[in-house]
Nucleic acid binder design. Structure first.
Lengths: 165, 165
DNA sequence: GCTGAAAGTGCGTACTG
DNA sequence: CAGTACGCACTTTCAGC
C-alpha cells in the first residue's frame, strides 16, 4: 500500500503535470511560454516536465486533425473483421493496420474479431476496401456499419483531480 | 466540369499545402521555420498558408495524444446505443457527447443507433457509465464490445497526390 | 502568393539556489 | 526540482514585387 499527497498521485503525475496536459490536449501548438504563464512556473521548468512526459510515454504524440472532407474522405465506417488467427496472434490485425484507409484496429473480446475504423471517399471506395480486406487469407467475414454523421470525435481524455487512486 | 492543373486540385489544396499537412499531421508541434525549410519556401509564406488552412476548416485543430493508461483509463470499449429520437433529431447523440468518458459519437445507418467509443478505468466504471447511458430517456438499449488491445489508433489520413478528382 | 527585413518573442542551455 | 539570465532561433507583420 502506497501513500500519496495532494500533488503527487498515481503514475507520478502531479497537479502541474495535469494542468500542462489539459492545456496541451486541446491545443498542441500552444507555446511553452504560454503554458508557463498559465501554470505559474518558469518556462524552463515547464519544458523539463514536458520532455519527461514525452520520454515516460505519458504524451504519445502531437497530431493535427485534418478535415477528412478536405481530402475527399467523406465516408466513415466501422467494420467488424472476423479472423482466424492462431491463438494469441495479431497477424490479421497487423495486416489491417497497414492499410492507409484503416485508422484504427482494435482487437475485441468477440471470437477473433477486430473492430476497425475506416475513412474512404465514397461507397465505391468502401466496396473496394472491403474486397481487399476479404482477400486477406485469415479473414473469414466482415460486417460494416456506415456512419451518417459524427456528433463528437476527439482524442481528449478527461483529466481529473481525483483524490482517489 | 472543372479543370485543374498539377498543383491546384480538389478543394484548392496544392502540392505545397499537402506537404505542409503531411508534415504537421504526424507532428503538430513542428516549428513553422522547419516546415518552411522542408517545403522550400519562406517562413512567412508557410505561416500564411497554415492560417488559411485553419480558417478554411481544412485544419480542424492540434491535439496531444495522451496515454490513457497514464490517466488510469485502461479500458476502451465501443457501444451501440439504440435510441428513440424524433426523426432527424440527434438529441440522444448530443447528450452522449456531453459525457467525458465518451470520446466519439457516430450516428449510424442502423435504426436510430449511435456507435460510441468510450474510455474508462475498469469494468466497474464501464458498468456505471452504461447505467448512466441507459437512464437517458430516449435510450432503449445498448450493446457493448470491449477492446482487448489496439493494434493501430491514429487520426492521420492518407494524403495522396492523386491526379484524379 | 511569395520574398525578405525588422521587431518582438520564445526556446534551450547554463548556472544558481 | 524550480528560477534567472543570455544568446540564438523562431514567429509574425509588413512593404514590395
Amino acid at each position: 500500500m502506497e501513500f500519496y499527497n495532494s500533488t503527487m498521485r498515481k503514475n507520478g503525475l502531479d497537479d502541474t503535470d495535469r494542468q500542462i496536459l489539459t492545456l496541451m490536449q486541446g491545443n498542441a501548438r500552444i507555446s511553452n511560454a504560454e503554458i508557463a504563464r498559465q501554470v505559474g512556473k518558469a518556462p524552463s521548468a515547464v519544458l523539463e516536465r514536458i520532455r519527461k512526459l514525452e520520454v515516460n510515454g505519458v504524451i504519445l504524440g502531437y497530431e493535427t486533425r485534418i478535415n477528412p472532407k478536405a481530402l475527399g474522405l467523406g465516408l466513415t465506417a466501422f467494420t467488424y473483421v472476423h479472423a482466424e488467427d492462431a491463438v494469441g496472434s495479431t497477424r490479421s490485425g497487423r495486416e489491417l493496420a497497414e492499410l492507409p484507409e484503416v485508422l484504427e484496429v482494435h482487437h475485441t473480446a468477440g471470437q477473433d474479431a477486430y473492430l476497425i475504423k475506416v475513412r474512404v471517399g465514397d461507397t465505391e471506395d468502401l466496396g473496394k476496401l472491403l474486397r481487399k480486406i476479404g482477400s486477406i487469407d485469415s479473414v473469414r467475414d466482415t460486417r460494416t456499419t456506415i456512419v451518417l454523421g459524427s456528433v463528437k470525435e476527439t482524442i481528449e481524455l478527461a483529466i481529473t483531480n481525483d483524490t482517489q487512486d
